[in-house]
């Protein structure tokens, strides 16, 4: 059952990205371009998503188990450290260069665009680099 709900949630998420315009890099860059003609649409995407998710997440925070009896796995870290801020700043630079973040990169992958294939390969490379650097640090 949880496999089915995972697949369904992923599908709805992807349809949402497509409908919202998040999967159009030109539109994302139009949102990030405060200094030019600014398209505020994506601020509404975020506000709407948070508005819908706020109550369910408030409920989830107080539970030990999910409705389908899985352990509730919410992040426990609290500290605002250099990794969090530095990593997020780097991510933002990449987002600003191409207008693509990880979700839309995957929704675009089967659309037949060479650009999305190249981006996803580079993104996987970046994630692999992280894992390799972490392994080196802890050994």
């Amino acid at each position: 059952m949880r496999r089915l709900t995972a697949l369904l949630a992923g599908l709805i998420f992807g349809l949402g990205l497509l409908l919202a315009g998040m999967s159009n890099p030109a539109k994302v860059l139009g949102f990030l371009d405060l200094g030019g003609a600014w398209d505020p649409s994506l601020a509404l995407v975020m506000a709407s998503a948070i508005g819908v998710a706020l109550l369910p997440f408030t409920w989830a925070r107080r539970q030990q188990r999910s409705l389908l009896d899985a352990p509730m796995q919410l992040p426990q870290k609290r500290e605002l450290d250099r990794r969090l801020i530095g990593g997020s700043l780097l991510f933002g630079i990449g987002w600003g260069i191409a207008g693509i973040c990880p979700g839309p990169a995957l929704t675009l992958l089967l659309g037949g665009y060479w650009q999305s294939l190249l981006f996803v390969l580079a993104m996987l490379g970046g994630m692999w680099l992280f894992t390799a650097l972490e392994r080196r640090r802890t050994h």
Partner: peptide
């Protein structure tokens, strides 16, 4: 961009 997004989101 892909490299920065991959690396940055994992560190962040």
């Amino acid at each position: 961009a892909g490299l920065l997004v991959g690396l940055g989101t994992r560190y962040g």
